[in-house]
Each structure stands twice: as structure tokens, then as C-alpha cells.
Design a protein around this nucleic acid. Structure first.
Lengths: 206, 206
DNA sequence: TGTACATCAGTGAACGCGCGTTCACTGATGTAC
DNA sequence: TGTACATCAGTGAACGCGCGTTCACTGATGTAC
């Protein structure tokens, strides 16, 4: 009878749920052990039976977010492109999907970037894999636009493209003065990706 | 005899110096009122005679950083372009200048974006002006590449371009796994700007 | 120039707040016989 | 099925740490006469 172990697992899931909700509502800084305990209905100390650390909890929430993001991007571009024009459209769709996800999951999405690991700690293995997986959404269409055999070049470009789109979305959603106004955000993201793709295909042609 | 007022001003400057040094060495989180007092050689409470708040101090440091950034960008592209090719080169130079500045002033540069205003407070007037001023480095060359009379469009594009470059630099200097490796950073920044410019001029041609 | 007084910078101990984590204790659950 | 015991989840007060800001007090500086 694994009743006891199953129970433990259920509680841990509840804990992560609660943490996720708290972050979504109040941001990472709004995540407090005491409130969490109250929310879940257990004692403060009990948290540390389910989880090593607050840090572990945050990582687990981040992992969930990444999984949902992956699903969202898959949904945004369901089929693999084969012509450059299709590839451009797919990249645009992925970028817009990213933008929409960030907007709809603002606080949770921020955690993915805000959270600096404590000085010494290395990023856990599974986090690496998760991130790599994410890049297939960009790498595949990019392969159509850059059919040269230069794989490392393509990988670099995928990271650059991601960072560029991320930058526009991040600063846009921050709503500081520098920012692209939120209403125009989708337009500008699309424009940026199209410009880059156009530049890329022109390069190839030349 | 303004000896006393001048003295006050000198001390305030020393305080900002010390804060700047502390942030540059240890990051925003490493800025502590007590250490600052020790560094400057005054009592903890004396700080509050020179400055309203820790927040004011951080803003003042940020203002200095912005001024130095502005100077760096001016130095990066000393003359105004008149042909599209020149404009592209200038935009590349400005982007590379931005990248270099961020690298050389990592912690101080981060403060410009890390520091979220306390919920209620609005961004002070002078900060707005400073930011606007900064954009002339992008707007002028962009005007050559986008000679259409559509001013708002150009402003949007300048913000998008800035955000994109900023994204690549920011994630690159973060050195997380997603990042473009630091060695390649300059290359990739240049490539991104050239791609966008190429895309822009192709649009115009079409 | 000298004296009396007022002002205000300078002082640092203490306040107030927040928070993650620990730990001695309790009581429920599961096991062995 | 019933009893005795062991294990371990659950508890929440207390610990430890960090930090910005305040405030009653002091002493130096500048002013007025």
C-alpha cells in the first residue's frame, strides 16, 4: 500500500500549484513560505518535508512553465515548413506565440529569466535539456531558410533570433518609456522576424 | 561664503561616487547603506542629510550611467550618414558600441533595467528626457533607411531595433545556456543589425 | 577681537519589518507479534 | 482481532540574519552684538 507515498506526492503537487498561483498573482517576490503554508493548509515546517528549499520550489514551477510554453509554441506552428516563405511564416507564428504566452503568463514567464541561480550552484541537467528542446521550434524552420551545411552557424542564428524577439517582448511588456507600446507589440514582433527572414533569404540569394 | 553648501555638494558627489563603485563591484544588491557610510567615512544617518533615500541614490547613479552611455554611443558613430549603406554602418557601430558599453559596465548597465520603480512612483521628468535623447543615435540613421514620411512608424522601428539588440546583448552577457556565447556576441549583434537593415532597404526597393 | 547664542550637520544605537529555515515536541499511521 | 511499539509526518515558536530608516543627542560652525 503506497498510500503514504502517494499522499506525499499529492501534497507536493498541491504545494507547487499554490506556489504557481502565488507567483502568477503577485510575482516571484510575492512568494512567501508562510502564505504558502496557509494556502495549502499545513504548518510552515511541513513545506520542508515536501521540498528541499524554496529554490527547488521555484525551479519546479519554472519547469512547469517551460512545459506549457513548449506546448503553446507547438500549437502555434503545427506543421513543418518546406519552402522559405513557409519557414518565414512559421517563425513569425512561433514568435507571436511566444509573445502571447509571455503576455498571458507574465509573472510566471518572468521567473524563467529573473531567477539567478545562487552563485555556486550549476543549472540542473533537466533544465538544460528542457531549454534545448525548446529551440527545435526555431531551428527547424531556420534550417529551411539557411540550407547551408553550416550547422553551428544556424544554431548561433537561432539563439540570436530568439534573444532579439525576447528583447522586444520583454521590454514591451515591461511598459517602461523605451518600450514599444503594448498595442503595437504583435505588429512589431512580426515585422522584426519578417525583416530578419527577408535579410536571410537575400543573403542566400546573393 | 558658500563653504558649507559647497562642502555639502562635495560630500553628495562623494556619496554617489561610492555608490557607483559599490554597484560596479557587487551589483545593485551589494549596495548597503552601512557599507556606504563606512566607505565615505561618515555616520549611517549622515547619508540621509545628503540624499532623500536609497532610491534617489540609485536614480542618480543611473543618470550618470546613462550620460556615459550617451557619450559612448556618440563616440561610436561620430558622423551622420547620408546613404543607406552608411546608415547601416552607423547603426552597426552604434549597436556594437552599446554591446561594448554593456560589457564594460555590466553591473551599472544592468541597474538601468533591473530597478523597477516602487509601485506608485512615476518616472521623474529628467529620466524621460534622457531616454528620449538616447534614441537620436538610432533615429537619425534610421531616417536615411526609411525615408518615407511616416514618422511614427520610424519611431516604432527604432524602439523595436533597440529592444532586439538589447535582448541579444542582455541574454548574451547573462551567460545562461540559451545565450549566444560571449565570444560570438559582437558578430551576432552585427549580423542581426545588418539583416534588419537589409530587410528594410529591400522593403523600400520593393 | 571677544563672547554668547543658534543652527544644523554628524552620530550610531535602536526601531521595525520581513523572511527562510530549524528543531524539540506531538500525535497519527503502519508494523510486528 | 488486539496490543505494543516504532516511525515519521506535522507543528509553530524561535532563531538568525539582513537591512533601510529614525531620532534624541553632541558638538562644530557661523552669526550677532
Amino acid at each position: 500500500m503506497s498510500t503514504t507515498a502517494a499522499r506525499r506526492e499529492r501534497q507536493r503537487a498541491q504545494l507547487i500549484d499554490a506556489a504557481e498561483r502565488a507567483i502568477a498573482e503577485k510575482g516571484l517576490a510575492g512568494l512567501k513560505a508562510r502564505e504558502l503554508a496557509q494556502e495549502v493548509g499545513c504548518a510552515l515546517g511541513a513545506i520542508y518535508n515536501l521540498v528541499q528549499d524554496m529554490d527547488e520550489l521555484i525551479l519546479r514551477v519554472g519547469s512547469r512553465t517551460l512545459a506549457r510554453l513548449d506546448a503553446a509554441l507547438s500549437a502555434a506552428a503545427p506543421q513543418a515548413p518546406s519552402t522559405p516563405d513557409q519557414a518565414t511564416d512559421v517563425l513569425v507564428a512561433v514568435a507571436l506565440g511566444y509573445c502571447a504566452f509571455a503576455r498571458d503568463n507574465l509573472q510566471l514567464w518572468r521567473v524563467l529569466f529573473e531567477h539567478r541561480m545562487a552563485e555556486g550552484a550549476t543549472v540542473p541537467e533537466w533544465a538544460v535539456t528542457e531549454q534545448m528542446t525548446m529551440f527545435r521550434h526555431i531551428l527547424q524552420p531556420l534550417g529551411v531558410l539557411m540550407p547551408d551545411p553550416d550547422e553551428p552557424e544556424r544554431i548561433l542564428m537561432s539563439r540570436t533570433l530568439f534573444s532579439a524577439v525576447h528583447g522586444v517582448v520583454a521590454i514591451g511588456l515591461e511598459e517602461k518609456l523605451i518600450a514599444v507600446p503594448r498595442r503595437e507589440l504583435d505588429h512589431q514582433v512580426e515585422k522584426l522576424v519578417r525583416l530578419v527572414c527577408r535579410g536571410l533569404s537575400k543573403t542566400v540569394a546573393a
